[in-house]
Design a protein around this nucleic acid. Structure first.
Lengths: 169, 169
DNA sequence: ACTATATAGTGCGATATCGTACTTAAATCA
DNA sequence: TGATTTAAGTACGATATCGCACTATATAGT
């Protein structure tokens, strides 16, 4: 692999990393109290996709370790934005339901973000965003598959490490 | 703003966030000991751009708060990978130099990552990556400018909060 | 020069993130 | 059905990230 090519891929991840950081900071600035982007994202997912998901499904959807999701969910639950109940189909598992307060919170956050999104939309064409999303999804899926492959080879020697990560969304 | 448009931009940030997370996890898995992606990124920057940068310049380059950069640098220094010395031009400031061990570490990390990059390059065309980078840089700059604008309006009432964040790269 | 303001860096506390190890329940299989 | 393996979730500890407050130095304004 020549070093130009290597640099190109590094730059891709570098830009993506910085955008992730900036967009997260943008959201965080609009969210009240102790709630930050991951909290909002989970609420949004529960509405966009469907609530009644299990914690593990959510962890997979966001590509975070299940311990991180446990932590995020406990924050949401302590604020009364979700309700976590046992899963009747599986005694090991739970199911996460969004509450009315959770819906209101999510709607309010979207409203608060609207001006930021509008400002961005004024400068970046819808078409450009649409054309980016396809390739990004493709890259995300490839990385995801690579991670799974690395995991399964590691599993042979190391046990379950990160067994909780899978494809999603 | 119609809700389809809003959803589109949310999805963009969602994909970018997940790719950032996956690529970071990929790097972390290749780095030894207590060193993780931010450590590598700083070393790489010190070589790619130039060493002798100040901590604040580095914080800006990576869009992290200066306290985070202090922390990252202290980790690198304790491993002997960088040397932080006073800045003769400014008594408040310091300058960061990469050591020989730092160079070796960075080169080794790149080598270790090579197979991951190669695997990705086999599945994602160079041209596709090249075509993504331009728009991503554009979006990064816009977000960056928005953040600066939000900061300066906030400054009027709130003081210095996050004064340390600026454009970079 | 003197004062006021802005800038660079750090100390500290709060919370987030993540890995490891554990508990409990389910699924597999003998 | 009993034993083994796999899966879901949590407890705990280590480190990362970040905001706020502070110190020290530099710069601007008078």
């Amino acid at each position: 692999m020549d070093s130009d090519t290597r640099l190109l891929y590094f730059r891709l991840f570098n830009e993506i990393g910085i955008i992730a950081q900036l967009s997260r900071a943008m959201m965080d600035a609009r969210l009240p109290g102790g709630l930050i982007t991951p909290h909002f994202s989970v609420l949004n997912h529960l509405i966009r996709v469907e609530d009644g998901r299990t914690p593990l499904e959510l962890a997979r959807a966001f590509q975070v370790p299940k311990t991180t999701m446990t932590h995020t969910l406990s924050g949401l639950e302590s604020q009364g934005l979700i309700s976590v109940r046992p899963n009747p189909q599986d005694g090991r598992s739970k199911r996460v339901w969004i509450t009315e307060a959770g819906r209101r919170f999510r709607d309010g956050a979207i409203e608060a973000l609207d001006e930021d999104i509008a400002a961005l939309a004024a400068l970046v064409d819808r078409e450009e965003v649409e054309s980016l999303i396809g390739p990004l999804i493709e890259i995300r899926k490839i990385l995801d598959a690579q991670r799974d492959r690395a995991k399964s080879t590691a599993d042979a020697s190391l046990g379950e490490a990160r067994e909780d990560q899978g494809v999603s969304s």
